[in-house]
Design a protein around this nucleic acid. Structure first.
Lengths: 159, 159
DNA sequence: TATTGTTATACTCTATAACTATA
DNA sequence: TATAGTTATAGAGTATAACAATA
């Protein structure tokens, strides 16, 4: 089977191999954009964007406290964290607390409302999960999710 | 095992369940961004962005001919296709040909150089694939790629 | 009058650079 | 002098709206 895959190739031409669309990279890029769009749409009623949810997640799980730590963890620039935190403070989801040992540091803390919001973000993500995975045989889902996790760790991911 | 997963939870608190970071949606979003960044970096020396590669791919495979068709296929607005095509024309990768039956239509055609460039885009994607999949046991890759393809079809994907 | 493509403009997201306050 | 945070500004990417040519 030297020449499979559908219609005839122009005989003199380059031996087929292009299929960019078949690469992992391309499919991850595409699906990632779809996931991001749907997640954003699901968060919109909460007046939140995916970045806000990500910030709340790292703060809520204690992975980062000061704004600089959050920026590093998210892989974004500190000035962006300021804007994201400003919004979350306006919503009453986080509080800024000056570290008494080093008054330059602003420690971010989820309020109770913040925890509830974060929970609703996660619920939104899970419901997008359902839509996305609908076409995936239930038997494949676990393996897929596990592989996806492995890939996410392998990459320099900016959770 | 009602209470697994690491450290103790504050006893009075909400019963854990948040892990936004464990959702398919979140991981696809994150990995998709990583894949897009790396692919963009790999394309930069060619003076191309992922969108240009996507355009060349749909035109090269005959999935869309007129700019409007390309826009629909890519899920972008027609004016963006104009800009992308302008750039590709400057590079000598595509030609615009007025459809003689309907002189409003601009049919996009890959030049020979365009085919070569598209091939190099695909090669770039495959090399990013290698980096990304490095952490994935070879035995899992085929299944993962297949599931990913299934998901991509299930979504309203804007290839 | 409707449609294809184009141009001009605006919006969103994020980064860079300059500045303030603490250390 | 160096660091955490902030503000002001700029850039990339994409959309919306107005317009031209053709149907």
């Amino acid at each position: 089977m030297t020449d499979a895959e559908g219609a005839a190739a122009p005989p003199g031409s380059q031996r087929r191999s292009e299929p960019l669309s078949g690469t992992l990279t391309f499919q991850l890029m595409t699906l990632g954009a779809v996931a991001a769009d749907r997640f954003a749409a699901a968060l919109a009623p909460l007046d939140l964007k995916p970045r806000h949810a990500a910030l709340m997640a790292v703060v809520g799980r204690g992975l980062a406290a000061s704004q600089l730590e959050v920026a590093a963890h998210l892989g974004v620039v500190p000035s962006l964290v300021v804007a994201l935190a400003d919004h979350l403070v306006r919503l009453g989801a986080v509080e800024r607390i000056r570290d008494p040992r080093d008054r330059r540091r602003q420690v971010l803390l989820l309020t109770q409302h913040g925890h509830r919001l974060l929970e609703r973000c996660a619920a939104a993500a899970r419901s997008v999960d359902e839509e996305l995975a609908a076409r995936l045989p239930a038997s494949e889902r676990a393996a897929f999710t596990r592989s996806l996790g492995a890939l996410a760790n392998g990459a320099g991911f900016p959770t």
